[in-house]
Design a protein around this nucleic acid. Structure first.
Lengths: 337, 337
DNA sequence: GAAGAAACTGGGAGCGCTTCCAGTCCTCGG
DNA sequence: CCGAGGACTGGAAGCGCTCCCAGTTTCTTC
């Protein structure tokens, strides 16, 4: 069995003819343009209803130079990373924001080089009106390509390098500061940190928040280990910290995944949490509730991040004034600190 | 700050002029059509390279009546359901299959009525070449709309009503049968089942598999409770079963989520698993490894489901012969049975 | 009642590409 | 040396819509 020939849709010309007016007139009533008499409008609207007319998207796109499509590009080396619930939440947020516009969402997983070139092609061939970019790593070549294409782009999460004109981000610095302050407020003084990759925007920002809070609290960093946002990486980092700073009494981990690994490593080392070592994570993505003990962490409003990224892009596309946005994070107290 | 004016891309006419040939000739070399002399081809290719020409997607779409876009529509009442890792895996699979074509992926969350009408509109305005549909419930009005639109559609997971021309599905019946047989093979004879909503295709199919296996094993169903694929629903169903059939010695649950709830309810009732009651789930979606005891379950190849759904659509769009596909499931033995 | 403004109308030129078709140019067998 | 057939070529007609513009009608206003 092969595909059936699609049923032919009526065209604007046919509608106009049926309504006994010119194509221009019909176009005007469809686009709610001014200078249309009552009689014309009625006739056209009746014809439209009778024929079940719907304007052809492609033709309209060609004439207006607007496709009505925006892309969400997720650039990351590991395609499996997409399976992280993070992105599902982002997509839910983005979709919600697009729902009251007539924009549609194109999804680009630009992890492979093939995926990247497909995205580049999409930009150059004017396949989309705008772009949302997520999960870039430090020196992603995409930023340059995007900038050159001239297609409006909004970044979800500020990239490390290059200062994009438009972005929406969680307040990573503030969150990390809050986490560290919480630890210090608990009376802990030997506070270590497990960072994400310092080549990423988030990794760097959360580390910076930690540093700032330590300075304000009048404390010296007590152990810094770089992880990779994975559970295994967190465990390894924790072990390293335990070796280099055996007397640490608190850890701020730049992600819940890593914190989960750290908890495991701490348990293996016989340290009790939070009695011996207090732990604070970052993200609050489900896993934080399932660790033992449950993780005190910084909540990041992911769905809102998606929603606001899309909203910002909508604003930009509408030609309205738009400025970057920083979304607040908040501390969620559970058992680990 | 507002959007900058996009830099103008060269057009085919300009390329042709630069190469000193007609637009038709240039078009021919771009589309690798026959009847192009070596000299013409070289000239055009040089011009293309020099000018960085990329054919405009929209214009091409208008001329060929093909957009180069396919949509993945997820129709479900609950938008939050999308956060389920299931869909992320589907998307990864779909993207992988599309990656070696020049089709792009449009994502439609058609849960709200607004979302549904957006999708309908997309079909009628010829905004996409083809459609993949997932997570339909029984009498989804979408099936009719899709059929009427004449746009080729492939179903991921067979809908309950209506027998679509093309679909890809996991072998739910076979999997459920396998699960039940496993239980029977363990010597259990009083085997209950917790079903999903019987108004869904999966719910019905997995129940059918259970029934068939029971008949083959010469056993009588020993308790049937309808759940809703959630953990809470599974727990409630298990409690009901414990009340109606206190002597049951095994349970086949139509999803891991429900099985997790069932395990909880069994623990509360003081039954030990698998000693008193053996439990088998369905899906193998991560949660199965994290229950206590770990869940014996039927593994469903989700990523492959997405991939094959996309492949089938690609085949259909290419006008090639295509037939429905049933993906094999397999038993994964863990602690619960 | 005339002149000017405002409302309406349809023709037509695009948007950037594909594709049909009628020509032109070669090549080659008879 | 001629004609047939094939390989090329460019002109032109779309694809279905928007939008400018010149022309017509209607409404003001003094």
């Amino acid at each position: 069995m092969t595909a059936p020939a699609p049923r032919r849709q009526p065209t604007l010309d046919e509608v106009a003819e049926r309504a006994g007016v010119s194509r221009s007139a019909a176009s005007r009533v469809i686009n709610k343009a001014p200078h249309v008499s009552r009689a014309t409008r009625d006739a056209v609207e009746r014809a439209i209803k009778e024929m079940g007319y719907q304007p052809n998207r492609t033709a309209r796109a060609l004439a207006t130079r607007q496709t009505g499509i925006v892309a969400l590009a997720i650039s990351h080396d590991d395609p499996q990373l997409f399976a992280d619930p993070f992105f599902a939440q982002i997509i839910v947020g983005v979709s919600a924001a697009l729902e009251d516009t007539d924009l549609h969402l194109l999804l680009c997983l630009a992890s492979s080089s093939r995926g990247r070139s497909r995205l580049t092609n999409l930009l150059h061939t004017r396949g989309v009106d705008g772009l949302m970019l997520m999960a870039l790593h430090g020196d992603d070549p995409l930023t340059r390509i995007v900038a050159q294409s001239g297609i409006p782009a909004v970044y979800g999460g500020r990239p490390l390098r290059g200062d994009p004109q438009w972005y929406v981000d969680s307040d990573n610095v503030g969150g990390a500061r809050m986490a560290t302050e919480h630890l210090a407020g608990l009376g802990r003084t030997r506070i270590a940190t497990i960072t994400g990759q310092m080549s990423t925007g988030v990794g760097e920002a959360r580390y910076r928040g930690y540093r700032e809070a330590m300075i304000i609290a009048g404390l010296k960093p007590h152990g810094i280990a770089e992880g990779d946002f994975t559970e295994a990486g967190g465990a390894a980092a924790m072990r390293a910290l335990l070796l280099s700073h055996p007397d640490l009494d608190a850890v701020f981990s730049a992600s819940d995944n890593m914190a989960a690994g750290a908890l495991r490593a701490l348990a293996e080392a016989g340290r009790s949490v939070p009695a011996d070592v207090a732990v604070v994570g970052f993200d609050d993505l489900g896993i934080a509730e399932r660790t033992v003990p449950a993780l005190t962490t910084i909540h990041q409003p992911i769905q809102a991040l998606g929603r606001e990224t899309a909203r910002l892009l909508i604003t930009v596309l509408a030609g309205r004034e738009a400025t970057p946005l920083l979304l607040p994070t908040r501390l969620v107290r559970r058992g680990s600190a």
